[in-house]
Design a protein around this nucleic acid. Structure first.
Lengths: 198, 198
DNA sequence: ATGACCGAGTTGCTTTTTTAACCGAGTAAC
DNA sequence: GTTACTCGGTTAAAAAAGCAACTCGGTCAT
C-alpha cells in the first residue's frame, strides 16, 4: 500500500513540511510581505537556495496546500466508475469533502484554517497566483471531459461553481458561525448548484 | 564567547548527539552486543556510513562521553595559576568535580549514569578500549608535567589515583547508597590519596 | 539622479549524506 | 566442509544541502 520510504525520501518530505509550516505560521503571524524568505529559511533551519529548491517562489510557500489538490477534479472524472456522469462524480466528491470538512470546501472553522484563507484572499499576489493554479486545474479537467469548446465550457463552469460554494461557506464561517451549523446549507447549496449544472 | 554557529555546524552537532543518544539508550536497554550498528543507524535516522563518519568504531559510540574529557588532566596542569603545584591543581579540579557530582568522578546516582558505568565496566571490549583512551590521556598529562621518566611516573600515578577514586565511589553507589551520602567520604578519600601523592 | 540598501531568486562550488555494493571474520545448518 | 547467514566496517557514485557571491527590480535618502 505505502511505498517502502527510504531515508532520503523521508527526510525530504520532512524538510518540505518544515519549510511549509514555518512559512505559513510566520505569514499568519506577521502577514505575507512582512516576512522575508530569509526569515523563513532561518525558522526552518535551512539555507535560502534549499528553500527555493523545494518551492519555486515565495507565493508557492502558501499555495502548496492548494497545489496538493492540483488536478483533483480531473482525476475524479477519470477515475469515476462506468455509467456515472462526470458532473455526478464531481458532485459526490465535493459532498464527501463537505462531510469531512475538507478545508478546500471552505467548510472548516479551525482558527488556523480560516486565518489561512483570509491570508490568501487578502494578499493580492497570492490571490493572483492562485487563479493561475486554477487555470491549470481547469485545463486538466477540460482534457478529462473530452475535446473541443464544449468540454472547456463545462470545466470552467464546474470550477466556478466550486469556487463560489467554497467562498460562500468560508464567508459564513468568517462571520462567526460554526462549520457544524453551516453544514446543512452548504450541502443544500452544493446540491442545487450541481443539479443546475446538469 | 560562543562561535557564530553556521547552519552546517549546528546540524552536525545535532546529528552527532542524535547518534550518541540513540546508541547509549539502545545499549542500556538491550546490552552492548545485542544491538547492531544498523539498529543504531535506524534509530538515529541516518545511514551506516554516516554513523561511521561520526564515530570510528562501535565502541566509540559509548566512549565518546569519556573522550569528551580527553586531555582534561593535561589542560588542568597547563592552565594552573603560577605558584600552584600540578598535583594541587589536579586535586582541586577533582574535588570540584566531586562537588558538582560530575559523572567522571563516579559520584553520581542518576540511574542512567550508574547503568552507563555498569555497561562500560562489564563489557570487555568497552573496558578494553577505555584503557586505550586512558593511555592517551596519560601521555598528554606526562607531556604537560615535563620530560623524562619522572613526569611519566607522576602522570601514571595521578591517573591511577583518579581511577581508583572513581571506581570506589561508583561501587558505593552501585551498592545502593546516594551520592549525597557518599560525598563526605569521597572527599576524604580524595584528600588522602592526593596528599599521599605529594 | 545617484548611490546605498533590501528582498526575491540564481549560480558555482564544496561538504555532507544516502545508496548499494562490497570485504572479512565468525557461526550456525546440514 | 560447504553454504549461507549476520555483523563490523569500507568504498564509490550520486543526490542533497550549505555557503557566498551574484543579478535584478524596487525604495529611500541625499
Amino acid at each position: 500500500m505505502s511505498e517502502p520510504t527510504g531515508l532520503r525520501a523521508r527526510k525530504k518530505e520532512r524538510t518540505r513540511d518544515a519549510i511549509g509550516d514555518a512559512a505559513v505560521s510566520l505569514f499568519l503571524e506577521r502577514g505575507f510581505d512582512r516576512v522575508s524568505v530569509n526569515d523563513i529559511a532561518a525558522a526552518a533551519e535551512i539555507s535560502k537556495p534549499t528553500l527555493f529548491r523545494y518551492f519555486p517562489t515565495k507565493e508557492d510557500l502558501v499555495l502548496h496546500r492548494f497545489a496538493d489538490h492540483q488536478g483533483e477534479a480531473a482525476r475524479v472524472v477519470r477515475d469515476r466508475r462506468s455509467g456515472i456522469e462526470p458532473v455526478t462524480a464531481l458532485h459526490r466528491h465535493f459532498r464527501a469533502g463537505l462531510d469531512r470538512y475538507d478545508p478546500v470546501t471552505g467548510l472548516n472553522d479551525h482558527p488556523e484554517v480560516v486565518a489561512f484563507h483570509r491570508l490568501v484572499f487578502t494578499t493580492p499576489s497570492l490571490a493572483g497566483r492562485l487563479t493561475r493554479y486554477q487555470l491549470e486545474d481547469e485545463e486538466a479537467l477540460a482534457d478529462a471531459l473530452g475535446e473541443g469548446i464544449q468540454a472547456r465550457l463545462r470545466a470552467a463552469q464546474v470550477l466556478a461553481v466550486q469556487r463560489v460554494l467554497a467562498r460562500t461557506n468560508w464567508q459564513k464561517i468568517a462571520d462567526g458561525r460554526t462549520a457544524d451549523a453551516v453544514h446543512p446549507e452548504a450541502v443544500a447549496d452544493a446540491d442545487q448548484a450541481f443539479n443546475q449544472l446538469r
